[in-house]
Amino acid sequence: MKRLFTILLLAFSLALTAKYPDPASILRAIDANTRFTSLKSTTRMVIKSRRASRTVSSINYSKGDNSFFSEYTSPPRDKGTKMLKLGGNLWIYNPGTDRIVQISGNMLNQSVMGSDLSYEDFMEENSLLQDYNAVIEGEATYDKREVWNIMLTAKRKGLSYPKKRIYVDKERLLPLYEQWFSSSGKLLKTVRSDQVSRIGNRWYPKHVVFKDELKEGSGTDYYVDSIAFDLKIPDAIFSKGSLKK
């Protein structure tokens, strides 16, 4: 009897797995879309505060998961400000004061240029496969596309967001809607992606809306104006020396 039960259970779970693909393979596919050896992009961030809306443009370079450099090109106030992330460290260069300041402690809580993203969010690494265990919890239609509803839980300590729920486009294997949770399950941030287009062999969103769910406001729009993957970027860019240049 007991044995029968076990077999039934096994069959049942097999049926489930048959219904859904292997979640790890989905994460792998997402990583293939979103991760890169290197990247260069020009982006615009539209920040809506209670009083005004403004656009911050930047040129960004990334290499692997750990190196990131960006230089702001507008508005005039922020022009020339540079940001460098190397591993677990973050520096900001301010041209007005000609100072390089390391962002740490409470400062990491602050939002980047007043957006709904904090410096901490910038520090996140972006391999879902490496960082999270995934369970497919269902299917849905989101923004007229068929999506998998996947629950992610952190594999290791030290991630800012221990739980994430992502709705992944079944065909393009790209998250269209993400919910980032605290360890107690409180929704902290949401990320909505649209204008998904084909870039080389990837699907990539050209418009992303970040929203800090604890703050009031309607979120920050992030537009990708141009993007190129897997270029040759000189290593010198990802050094503190390049901040002052």
């Binding site: 920040i47 505060s49 009083r51 005004a52 403004r54 911050v56 106030r77 922020d78 900001i92 301010n94 007005g96 004061t97 000609d98 100072r99 300041v101 602050q110 939002s111 980047v112 240029m113 007043g114 957006s115």
Partner: peptide, 11 residues
């Protein structure tokens, strides 16, 4: 942070 929330520096 400036009035719009952007990080700001002054020497």
């Amino acid at each position: 942070s400036d009035v719009f929330g952007s990080m700001t520096f002054r020497q």
